[in-house]
């Protein structure tokens, strides 16, 4: 077939081909993002996301949003500026959560027998939806970083609280008070995760008394804004067509 001949012969066929491309691209995007984002989140958020006895009011609340706003920012940059498609953050989180659930269910529970109520992933969906909507409504990277990044950080703890609160009910155990989450960490033996590597409830926010979660969330939100900018630029750079044109 010579290059001058088109692969499609009618408008209907063109539409059909274009739609096939849509599904191919979306499918590939979903799994590439799933793989990349999942590895990134495991390396940076790791144990904070794996175990309930790491999901505290200070470090988990601070670390998880900061390290997880990365891929959503980059994928948004690509999908929005090139296609005006406002689902970059949601598609990332859908991929991440699918990967996490498969991993937690098959490996943590199915292979190693850690109960699912001890090793379920954190919920990032509320922040992702708001992040996408803000980008769509404002069409501005700056506004999305500031308003969306802020929402991303602030919605994280309340978005997860209904899921983890039951595990923060206190229990008296052999003369010590602990939460059910602490007890899970004690009961379900992890030989590779001794208690001292657990980074929870550490920090210098003591002056705020018992309301540390909102303070941590605000701090996390501010850093999320900065990280959003950075990764949005990464995304834009990767989405450039310069690479293809040269060929």
């Amino acid at each position: 077939m010579s290059a001058s001949q088109s692969a499609v012969r009618s408008r209907a066929e063109a539409v059909k081909v274009s739609r096939t491309f849509d599904w191919l691209i979306l499918f590939t995007l979903f799994f590439v993002v799933l793989g990349g984002y999942h590895i990134h989140y495991m390396l940076t958020g790791g144990d904070w996301d794996f175990w309930t006895d790491w999901k505290d009011r200070r470090l988990w609340v601070t670390v998880a949003p900061i390290v997880s706003i990365t891929f959503p920012a980059a994928v948004q940059a690509c999908l929005w500026w090139r296609y005006r498609l406002p689902f970059g953050a949601v598609v990332c989180v859908l991929g991440l959560l699918l990967g996490e659930w498969i991993n937690r269910y098959l490996n943590f529970w199915g292979w190693t027998y850690f109960p699912v109520n001890f090793c379920f992933p954190s919920n990032l969906m509320p922040g992702a939806i708001v992040l996408d909507v803000v980008l769509m409504m404002t069409g501005s990277m700056t506004a999305t970083a500031v308003i969306g990044g802020m929402a991303w950080g602030l919605l994280f703890y309340p978005g997860n609280w209904p899921i983890i609160a039951p595990l923060h009910v206190p229990v008296e155990y052999n003369g010590m008070m602990m939460t059910l989450a602490d007890l899970q960490g004690y009961h379900y033996v992890r030989t590779g995760t001794p208690e001292y590597i657990r980074m929870v409830e550490k920090g210098t926010l003591r002056t705020f008394g018992k309301d540390v979660a909102p303070v941590s969330a605000f701090f996390s939100a501010f850093v999320s804004i900065l990280i959003y900018f950075l990764w949005h630029f990464f995304g834009q750079w990767f989405a450039k067509t310069d690479f293809v044109k040269a060929a």
Binding site: T28, F31, V32, L34, G35, G36, H38, I39, M42, F50, G99, I102, N103, L106, N107, F108, W111, T112, F114, R190, T191, G192, T193
Partner: peptide
């Protein structure tokens, strides 16, 4: 693609 997707999903705690 398969390798990246599965790399993270195959992680199992010690």
């Amino acid at each position: 693609l398969l390798a990246t997707v599965s790399a993270a999903m195959l992680y199992t705690p010690t």
